[in-house]
Simulated scan of single mutants.
Amino acid sequence: MSEEVVFYLRVAFWGLFFLLALCYVIFPVTLPFVSELFKRRRRDIIENFDLPTVSLLISAFNEEGVIERKIQNILEIDYPKEKLEVLIGDDGSADRTAEIIARYADKGITLVKAPKNAGKAAMLNRLQKIAKGEILVFCDANTMFFPNVVRKLVAPFEDRKIGCVCGHLILSDKSGSMLGQGESSYWDLESEIKKFEGILDRLIGGNGALYAIRRNLYTELPVKKSVMDDFFITTKILQKGYFCTFVASAIGTEQTSKESSGEFRRKVRIGRANFNYLWSYLPLLNPFRPLLAYLFFSHKILRWFSPHLIILLFILNALLLPFGRVYQVSFGFLVLAFLVCVTKAVPSAYYFMSMNLALLKGFFLSFRREKSGGWAREARSDE
């Protein structure tokens, strides 16, 4: 192997190493300092800001086990009833979901029933067209709100430039599965990242379980392929020049998937949906908006492509074994890390490996034809 080839292999190796370090170490560790240096000061405040009208939108499919508890939770929300509209879409459920929702018509709960199962994105598009509120609040059927959530979510809209507000979802695990526990721990870290991105008012992607937007900023969701509705909608708001923020005190709770296999399948679907529309998110890398580009690249792009980077790093490291002790040591570390993951000796390491495998599978599935619409519901640890 020529010296020139070895030189380029070394450059590629250390470049990949830096990108992975940026994603998993440098970015999260330095984000608190970045948020303090560049935090946004809100100036475009609406005088005499009054509580806006709100439409709460829920797309449900086969949720008979949880929908009544969710409705009772909604009825306990501390917000003026005359300013709160509740629209629950039943997307062709095969169980008693629609029947249960219909019982609460006299309590201000509106059932929007689809003739057949078309998918969450299609139902949200339909609900948005019906909604009358100035602010749209999105949540899932299995997400339980604290009573003050809506008040907390609408407060930042006092600033005209705020287009999206994300609440704080707390995940708990009753399944005891390794992936369920890992997801709960991962979400705690993700919430910390969201908190600091919220200080910057540049939150990269909301959470479908608990977020709000201005109705006039809604972008119709594509339905030909699966899409992460929360990420698609919130990134389009950022692309329009508005800001997205995070409110840690707007709290909702949710359970993880009941089985490890369910958590893995969910991550595959998320990965596939994100790769399906990756091209539409690339404007966030606009160099003329450097802070937003840095956050999107470090938080999302590098994480989505982590499995690709890790595989390439392993291959390059193997090729460089004869050219220095440092490469022999790093290769040994990579092999040891792989064994720790595979043997499940460290639960968090096993979770990390499983989620990267799910991302990789989602990446390859994104190149295949996909039936539009439809749901793939996973049992949750509280069922």
Rank of each mutant, 00 (worst) to 15 (best):
M355I: 15
W375P: 07
D78M: 01
L309Y: 14
P347K: 00
A212K: 01
G206R: 00
S93L: 07
L19T: 07
I162Y: 03
K361V: 15
S191Y: 08
A60S: 14
V268S: 03
C139M: 10
D44T: 05
Y281K: 06
G271A: 12
G205E: 05
R126A: 13
V154H: 06
G206C: 15
S55W: 03
A293Q: 03
K361D: 10
R10C: 11
M1L: 10
M1D: 12
F27I: 06
S172G: 11
V6K: 14
S330N: 06
L169F: 03
L360A: 14
G271L: 07
P80H: 05
V86Q: 05
S2N: 15
L57K: 01
E220A: 10
I193S: 08
W14A: 02
G262W: 10
F288N: 14
M144S: 08
S348E: 14
A141R: 02
M228I: 11
F297I: 01
F333E: 09
P115A: 14
I162A: 07
P347A: 05
I162L: 05
G176Q: 07
S172K: 10
V329T: 09
V335M: 11
V137S: 04
I74K: 00
F333Q: 04
L316I: 00
L37F: 14
W375D: 01
A155H: 02
L20Y: 04
R269D: 15
L339N: 06
N125E: 12
F18W: 09
I237M: 02
R215H: 13
F297Y: 09
V5K: 13
F333I: 15
F232Q: 00
R40G: 03
H308Q: 13
R303K: 09
K129D: 12
A60L: 08
S306N: 09
E254T: 03
G332T: 06
N207P: 03
R325Q: 11
L9C: 11
R214V: 09
E64S: 15
W304Y: 14
F275A: 04
F196L: 02
T234L: 01
D230E: 15
N117K: 15
V54N: 01
L339M: 15
N48T: 10
V137F: 12
G362A: 11
T235H: 00
K39E: 13
V346A: 07
Y211P: 01
E82T: 04
S172P: 00
L319K: 02
I77G: 02
L284E: 10
R10S: 05
S354R: 01
F323D: 10
R215S: 14
L359C: 06
A121P: 08
E36Y: 10
D229W: 02
G362N: 11
S2D: 14
G167C: 06
W14S: 01
F61S: 05
Q239I: 07
F296E: 02
G15K: 08
